[in-house]
Design a protein around this nucleic acid. Sequence first.
DNA 1: GTCTATACGCCGATAGAC
DNA 2: GTCTATCGGCGTATAGAC
Lengths: 200, 200
Amino acid sequence: MDTEKEKEQKKSETQDEILLAALKLFTDKGYFNTSLADIKDEAGVKTTSTIYQHFKNKQAIAEELYHYILNSLSCSIDDIRRTSKKPSEQLREIVNLMFGLAEEAPDIMYFLLKMNHAEFLTDVKPIMETAPFEKILKIVQSGIKAKEIRSIEPLKAYTYFFGVINHTLDMVLIGTLDKSADVYLSDAWVTAWNTIAKKM
Amino acid sequence: MDTEKEKEQKKSETQDEILLAALKLFTDKGYFNTSLADIKDEAGVKTTSTIYQHFKNKQAIAEELYHYILNSLSCSIDDIRRTSKKPSEQLREIVNLMFGLAEEAPDIMYFLLKMNHAEFLTDVKPIMETAPFEKILKIVQSGIKAKEIRSIEPLKAYTYFFGVINHTLDMVLIGTLDKSADVYLSDAWVTAWNTIAKKM
DNA sequence: GTCTATACGCCGATAGAC
DNA sequence: GTCTATCGGCGTATAGAC
């Protein structure tokens, strides 16, 4: 093992620590209430200058988080589209994924669902035009074509379905629904699906 | 007409202008991206000092908006509970109200639905514990008792119903659903109601 | 290449002249 | 009571010492 590699590893580790710290603080207190000093403390690095070794500025940290999260989601959806065939199954897998995330990594779900990215990221696309959501919309369209989903504007179907799903996750994340996410999963799924399912 | 009264009137007018300007800017750019200089310009008052004549500080402006909006909503819901009897009718009226607001005063709806109040207001209750939402929850409970709504935890019913409604309004506010709110009203209502209605 | 020390702009808030 | 002028502090970002 050469030292060059170790150094690279260490560098990437502190980067991750900074990103994790920032994610926690941003979701906790908000982007603007989080100073670099806060991030420094939470990440366990010595000075704020260390942060500038890894990121151009504070906004770049948020950008990195944003792209990382959307990209991971996009990949997961690709996997789902590859392994499940029926649109209904694909949607169900996506819902499973989201409830799982809300439980294992609530910060990520919070960042995704509740933060106003445009407030601190410049030139950020509306979330509906990002890759993962365009893919979900395509699944909805296939569902309509395959007559699993009733004939309806795809955007409306998306709105209703994820209205139920996201709001359920929302209420779990803020603690109003006070049990863990998976307790609400199957009921939320049935309800969400029924808003768009073709009646037999 | 005595001058004392005119002065009072003028004072209250500039207060309203400041509040309106702040509401527009807060929803537009976010609370933290809005400086008092911005509010001064938008409100058409000469200096930032003028603002301090009417409000203790910037946060007090946001607080006033928050309480004003929640209070108006609460009153409207009281009216609805007085004039409509069946819980389903009451909910329908609330939905009408919200879609109307989204069309006539989208800033208010945006402030209510999309802003993270806790980020800039200290000691703000979770929105579900505020008066209007407790009233809505009571309506849901009556609906269950009256067997209009299926037997379900009231909080879940609230979550599903307003999942559909709020997400629809959300998508209209950000322009993803690109027609005016009322176009989506009746369909959203049917869908939302079906998530909780007792099947006959 | 790591940290100390500091620069500097921005903005909220105020004091005091008129 | 209206506005000018300014303060003070925070927080980002950098420069430069070791």
